[in-house]
C-alpha cells in the first residue's frame, strides 16, 4: 500500500493561539478515515493546514511524496490553489461557498483542470447521479437552497475534478439526521481505488463501522492512531 498523505510534526495556529501540537498522521491509498473529536479540538485546523489556509504552520506535510507544508506564517491561502491542483479536495465546514452562483456554475467551479473543464457537462451529470435532488435545481441560485442541498452542492464541487485525497469537513453539521445520512451514504459509495478520504465528524455514530480507521482528535493532538501506550 502506498502513502498518499504523510504529516510529521505539524503544529499550526492563528496568531498567539496554537491549535495543533506536533501532529503525526498518515493516510494510505484506498483508505477511508474518520477524524472524530469535539468542536474546537483542531479537526478543521488540521484539514485547513493541509491546504495551507491557517494563520501559521510548522512541520512537514507530504502529499504523494511532494512537500506541501513547511514553516509559513503569512499569506494564508497563497499556496492553496496549487495544492488543490495537485489533487487535494477540501469541502469546508458549513455551507456551500458561492451563494450568488447557480448550482451548475458552482459545480463548474470545481472543474479546475483543463480536462475537467472540457468534460464539465458529463461530470456535472455524474455528480447529479450521486446527488439526485440537485438535478432539478440546476439553475437555482445556491444561496436560495436548503441546508442539505447546499451541502450536496459543496461536496459535489469537490467531486468535479479527480482528486486523490478528499478532505470532507463536518458533512453532517447543522443538517437533519436523515439528510446528513444521505450525504454520508453518497460519500461512502464513492470508489476507493487509488484515492483516500478523510471525514471530520463530531458524531461518532454516523461513521461507526463505515470507515477503515477512526482517529480521535483531542486538544490539538491525535488519539487512537498514534500513542505512547496502547489503549487496550
Amino acid at each position: 500500500m502506498h502513502e498518499i498523505l504523510k504529516i510529521e510534526g505539524l503544529s499550526a495556529g492563528y496568531g498567539p493561539l496554537r491549535v495543533l501540537h506536533e501532529i503525526d498522521f498518515s493516510v494510505q491509498e484506498g483508505e477511508r478515515i474518520g477524524l472524530v473529536g469535539l468542536n474546537g479540538h483542531g479537526k478543521s485546523t488540521l484539514m485547513r493546514s493541509v491546504m495551507s489556509l491557517v494563520g501559521w504552520q510548522n512541520g512537514s506535510i507530504r502529499f504523494k511524496g511532494q512537500e506541501i507544508g513547511g514553516a509559513r506564517s503569512t499569506g494564508a491561502g497563497r499556496r492553496t490553489h496549487a495544492i488543490v491542483q495537485l489533487g487535494v479536495a477540501l469541502t469546508p465546514q458549513g455551507d456551500a461557498i458561492f451563494p450568488g452562483m447557480t448550482v451548475a456554475q458552482h459545480l463548474d467551479c470545481g472543474a479546475h483542470s483543463k480536462l475537467a473543464w472540457r468534460q464539465r457537462a458529463q461530470r456535472r451529470d455524474a455528480v447529479m447521479d450521486i446527488f439526485p435532488p440537485l438535478r432539478k435545481l440546476e439553475s437555482a441560485l445556491v444561496g436560495t437552497l436548503s441546508g442539505g442541498e447546499r451541502r450536496m452542492v459543496s461536496v459535489g464541487r469537490a467531486l468535479m475534478t479527480e482528486a486523490s485525497l478528499y478532505l470532507i469537513d463536518e458533512p453532517s453539521l447543522g443538517l437533519a439526521p436523515k439528510i446528513s445520512k444521505a450525504v454520508l451514504e453518497a460519500l461512502f459509495a464513492l470508489p476507493k481505488a487509488g484515492k483516500a478520504m478523510v471525514i471530520a465528524e463530531q458524531n461518532v455514530a454516523l461513521l461507526a463501522g463505515r470507515v477503515d480507521r477512526m482517529v480521535g482528535m483531542h486538544a490539538g493532538r491525535l488519539r487512537g492512531d498514534v500513542g505512547h501506550v496502547a489503549l487496550s
Partner: peptide, 14 residues
C-alpha cells in the same frame, strides 16, 4: 507583538 506571540506559540507547549 503579533510576531512575538506567534513565535511564542510555536515554541511553548501547552
Amino acid at each position: 507583538n503579533r510576531k512575538k506571540s506567534e513565535a511564542r506559540a510555536r515554541r511553548t507547549e501547552k
